[in-house]
Design a protein around this nucleic acid. Sequence first.
DNA 1: CCCAATGTTGCACACGTATGCAAGTCACAA
DNA 2: TTGTGACTTGCATACGTGTGCAACATTGGG
Lengths: 339, 339
Amino acid sequence: MTDAKVTSIDVARLAGVSQSAVSRVFSGASASKSTIAKVRAAAAQLGYRPNSLARAMITGKSRIIGLVVAYLDNQFYPAAIERLGAALQERGYHILLMMAENSAEGVEQVIQDLMAYQVDGIITASVAMTSDLTERCAALGIPVVMFNRGQDGSGFSAITSANREGGAKVAEFLLAGAHQRIAHIAGWQGSSTGRDRTEGFVARLAEAGVTPVATIDGMYARDAAAEAARTIMAQDARPDAIFVGNDHMAFAVMDVLRGELGLSVPGDVSVVGYDDVPMAAWPAYDLTTLRQPINRMVEATVDTVLGQIEDPDRLPEKIEIAGPLIVRGSARIPEGWTR
Amino acid sequence: MTDAKVTSIDVARLAGVSQSAVSRVFSGASASKSTIAKVRAAAAQLGYRPNSLARAMITGKSRIIGLVVAYLDNQFYPAAIERLGAALQERGYHILLMMAENSAEGVEQVIQDLMAYQVDGIITASVAMTSDLTERCAALGIPVVMFNRGQDGSGFSAITSANREGGAKVAEFLLAGAHQRIAHIAGWQGSSTGRDRTEGFVARLAEAGVTPVATIDGMYARDAAAEAARTIMAQDARPDAIFVGNDHMAFAVMDVLRGELGLSVPGDVSVVGYDDVPMAAWPAYDLTTLRQPINRMVEATVDTVLGQIEDPDRLPEKIEIAGPLIVRGSARIPEGWTR
DNA sequence: CCCAATGTTGCACACGTATGCAAGTCACAA
DNA sequence: TTGTGACTTGCATACGTGTGCAACATTGGG
């Protein structure tokens, strides 16, 4: 007997109690055994479920988290969304998903929309925010957590992997492999993750007295990375190793090296990526890469945003989680290292 | 001057008009030039945006679409979500994203949640619904559109590619290529898409007097498909062609064939997939596949769900969109066909 | 100059729920 | 029996917006 719209008043009438009694039963406030039983029975009979929007109006808590995401080509983000969604659902929250091109106006518009829906918190994945916008969110008491992207200033929380350290680990690995001419196709230098990985990488090389033979910004895009690979391999000092700023670009680079240039990986060139997306383990690429510990990053993100919702005085935090280098077959394996 | 919570009453007070005047300005109802100007100015000064939840309460339209999705490993779904999100945003709707394992109880729970949030419509991607559930949605006047999955019975809309026709096209292509022993690793036979592709494929082979040398359900899963490939290749009549129920599985199959078994594709075995996800075009796989016209499928999905929202009397429709076979390098190319 | 028609505005109420408050119930101990 | 405390329950109100209705302002034509 599912009727068009069932409200708590209908349930109250059928159960012979007041509307507030129904509300108390469903919001977990105290009520007598008999009332609970009557209400539950009536609700079941009518197929009643409390209206979340009305509930949100009155409590000021929508239990909705806004998730802003730029593009989903890079397999890392679908994987992250999948886990974020599951983790939030488990804790009684829901996701309002927004696509935003990574421009100031685009993000502005999207955040405005989210605020209009009274989201309790916002998670941005691979999207930068103007500090103006972040201040407005802070003024409204809406916590913002940036996933896989950091930002200077202290208005917001950010969860990333330990990108400098990660870049350094890759440098160490390539140095240990006795590579002579090391190149770098960088993650987008407009993003903190891209810059940090590059910095850590270059700094550790410098400690060993090595300078990259080339560094090109791959913009986190397949075609830019492919083009960068062509450019790099066309130059005089042809590299024997390339560190690519993420796996998504690394696949494009390997496609160019093997497909277009007929080179062997790692015979002629070693390739190392960053992320360890599922595809990196597939035999077709078998990519050596620095793993971003996605599960722990997601946990930290959820903990941070929900923690800040529950305790508004909590300060924003920037969390970096270190990940291991996953040694596979796309780069020469130094003596003493194992897969 | 962004204050904690700005309501239409605050704006009204500052503009020297009534709350209803503010409401009319923002909901597009008629108002005088001067009122509009005053309200706009006051709203801008206070940083006011109408509360979407309150608006949803009163109008009964939340402008939220529930999107239910099972898993995102298969690149086809992130791509679809990206486009669905963009298309819906463009038309003033927003996406409440829910993950659901593909079980009856899982979906039940998720749909309940969506209904509690008063979504205007529901799109399910690669998820089946019980007819009981669909009836309840229909009773509430919530249109449900299944994306890339069909279902018998007439309670709901479904957008798919022309799966039988597609399977038949693949059969034709493999027959034209003079393959002698054709095998099939099927899409999940619990889904309409999987069954339809198989049916169309097998029927067209039968017309030519050919029977598949093996058919195994790959469950739309990487490992099941890989295992199926091992089984199929271990049998006496080793196939020289395999039609795999989607690209995601086809990649796993190619990995097994080339990586584990050291076979050449298409030299020893031709492989054909279904979907044409972006990765199918990458040189590492260069997969011949039947394209699902994702853009047109998304358009049809959005049109259908919004159309049914605007006109509740509109009947559910089942739309099939045909796609072309994309000839690449993973399968022997018959005389007269071109890439 | 007046009337009707058209356009604008404010008042009051509705949407469906949560919650403070006061009244009521019940049991238990003195 | 009576008083006291612990629980329950219903009433009324609030959340922030849209909208019917009636009052009012404005305009144009005769």
